[in-house]
Structure formats: C-alpha cells, structure tokens
Design a protein around this nucleic acid. Sequence first.
DNA 1: TTCCATGTTCCGCA
DNA 2: TTGCGGAACATGGA
Length: 261
Amino acid sequence: MPELPEVEIYRRYVEKHALRQRIERVRVPDRRILRGVTAPALDRALRGRRLVSTRRHGKHLFVQVERSEWLYLHFGMTGDLHYYSDGETPRFSKVILDFTRNRHLAFEDARLFGAVSLVHEPEEFIARKRLGADPLDETFKPALFRDALRARRGAIKAVLMSQLVVAGLGNLYVDETLYQTSIHPLRPIAKLTDAEIASLHRTIKRVLNVVIERNESNRDLPRSFLTTHRAEGESCPKCGAPILRAVIAGRTTYYCDAHQR
DNA sequence: TTCCATGTTCCGCA
DNA sequence: TTGCGGAACATGGA
C-alpha cells in the first residue's frame, strides 16, 4: 500500500532490520521486476557488501550499498518488503537479498507495477525524472509549492497526483488532503486562492505525518479522516452528508459534496 | 464470475 | 511544442 507514508515506513524498516549485514547473494525469482539491470549484474553489485544507509524521495526508495551503486526500489501498487529468518519465502517475492546467518530481505510485488534497479546517484535520478519536492523535506516551502501549482492547468486533483509537482502523493492522500481543506477535487488551479494553496501546503504535510505516526505505532487513522470512510454513501465525518464517489483524473475519488467546493 | 485496485508511462489530441 | 486526459500494463482479492 505504497504512497509516501508507506514508503517512509519501508525506509525505516530497512534501517531497522537490513543494514550492516553482509549480503551473501541476490536471488531474482521473477526478473520482470528488474529495470535496466540484469539479475547477474544486480548480484555482482551487492554480493559480499553491506547496505549502509537509506534515502527516500516521494515514493522512491534508495538504499546505499557500500563501495557500489544504490539499490533502487519502487513499490508500484502492491510492492512490499519482508525481512525474515529462514522459514517460508514470501509468496510474491521478486528479489531476495540473502544475508549471513540465514536472514533475508524480500521485495514482494503481486502485480508487477513496482521496480528494482541500480542507480549511481539518487540526486541524479530525481533530477532526471524531474520530480517535485518531497513534502516532508525542508525544501518544500510554501512559495515553491504555490509556484509549482500555478504553473499547471486543470483540476487540483490531477495536479496533486503529478509527481512532477509534489513527489509522493497518490490517490488516497490527495483525496484526504482535498477533503481536509474543503476543496473540491475538480476545482481548477486558476480558481484557487493563495490562502487555499497555503492551506493545502500545510495540510499535505500534516496528513502525511499523521499517517506515518499512526502506521509506525500500528494504530488506525483518526475517524475524522476521509480515508477511514472511503465508501460510497458513508457519512462525512465533518457534516454527516453522504460521501460521493466519482472518477476524477482517471482514479476513483471520494469526496463530500456538501463542504468541498 | 465480475469488478476493482494506494502507480507510472505512453499515445493521441488540442 | 507543450500539456492534458485517458488507456494500457499484470494480477490477486473481494
């Protein structure tokens, strides 16, 4: 379930479990997950080395390999990480790092929209992809966000979904952000006030931080979040009106027509 | 059985 | 030329 908060949890998971152990070998049960690298090349880049640090930008995770390139992980719609000691190999494993002492880190992905690769330098990757600022990075300033939004046309939902404007929001948390700022997902950028854009900026950071905190401590999201009411006909937590469902920017969208304008 | 899915990329059109 | 909207991708789970 990977948007920015989930990828941040994966980053912490790698930090907690998988650093500083020697990699004995890399297995690739399904090479279709690889992008621009072969299974033997991936093994050569990692074998005998250790993972030493992590870096995340939006939904992109980079894991530094000592004296080598960075391991790049993208989780697509169904990517997941699982650290385990012997026992069962996770069902949808696509790439498995075998550490010493029978420890393993599996990258799983049932639906194959994710990707595993090697990159020389995360900064270069981010620049080449022209990714927008990461909303939890200190460079995500209100003026930067406002200018990035104002440079675009179309509906606010579509624009917030673009990784070139802000890196890391996806369908769920765009809906959540718009819900909490009472902005209709179809509102054109040109019709947003500066105050609303400032509110969006604050709300994006707050929503993502709340999701990370709750996820980290294994708690449900607040009942005041739209995300806990994503079903047509559910009652809006703010006003009790029925939650509506529509396809906007090509994705299923939930919103409250009573107060999102 | 049928429908739906938290992402990204590519294609056609304006 | 640039940018937007929608389809395609591959597959499991409800």
